[in-house]
Simulated scan of single mutants.
Amino acid sequence: MFGGGGGLNPRKMKQMMNQMGIDLEDIDAEEVIIRTPEEELVFHNAEVQRMDAQGQQTYQVVGEPDSRPRGEGGDTDEAGAIEDADASGGGSSSDFSEQDVEIVAQRAGVPEETARETLEETGDLAAAVQQLEDE
């Protein structure tokens, strides 16, 4: 990102990023799962950072994933994994847990009922938050 940044100490780099409106946060993740149509990439004990810059969130995952094929039956929720923001929904309230509703309500600053309705309408956590923030 910064050319010749080898001479900057981490504290100075963080100070410069804060001045530019970039916020970094380490996330204590136990597991990260990336699902593609063909496989799941499962990162155990991965290093995860979230960067907030200009209203956009970017996640960086560092680690070695285990790869496992996805089954025809859609057996994707192993060990109680929670649907993440990129999961597609079918439009019914059963597609979203109470935790999903709470996340959208908290992130968008709206009542849970409004969050639930928007989740049902959009079928996606990220889209629901974005729609509510744009209103």
Rank of each mutant, 00 (worst) to 15 (best):
L8W: 11
N9C: 04
E120G: 12
D28K: 14
E135V: 02
I33V: 15
V62I: 15
V62Y: 13
A127R: 14
D86H: 14
E47I: 03
T76P: 00
V61R: 10
G71Q: 10
E38C: 02
D86N: 14
G90W: 01
Q106N: 15
D100R: 06
A115K: 08
D77M: 05
A85K: 04
F43K: 00
I82V: 07
D23M: 08
L132W: 06
T76R: 11
E135G: 14
A87M: 07
A105F: 03
A85S: 11
G6Y: 08
M51A: 12
A29V: 05
E30G: 15
V62R: 15
A126C: 01
E40V: 02
Q56Y: 12
D84S: 12
A108R: 07
D124P: 02
E31V: 09
D77P: 00
S94Q: 13
D26H: 07
V110A: 03
E83L: 08
F43Q: 00
F43Y: 14
G73V: 06
M16W: 05
L41T: 00
R107W: 01
V42N: 02
S97Y: 14
Q57L: 04
H44E: 15
Q60R: 14
A85L: 07
T118V: 03
T76A: 09
V42W: 02
E113D: 15
P10W: 03
A79L: 06
A53S: 15
S92Q: 13
V32Q: 03
A108I: 03
F43H: 01
V110E: 07
G6A: 13
F2E: 10
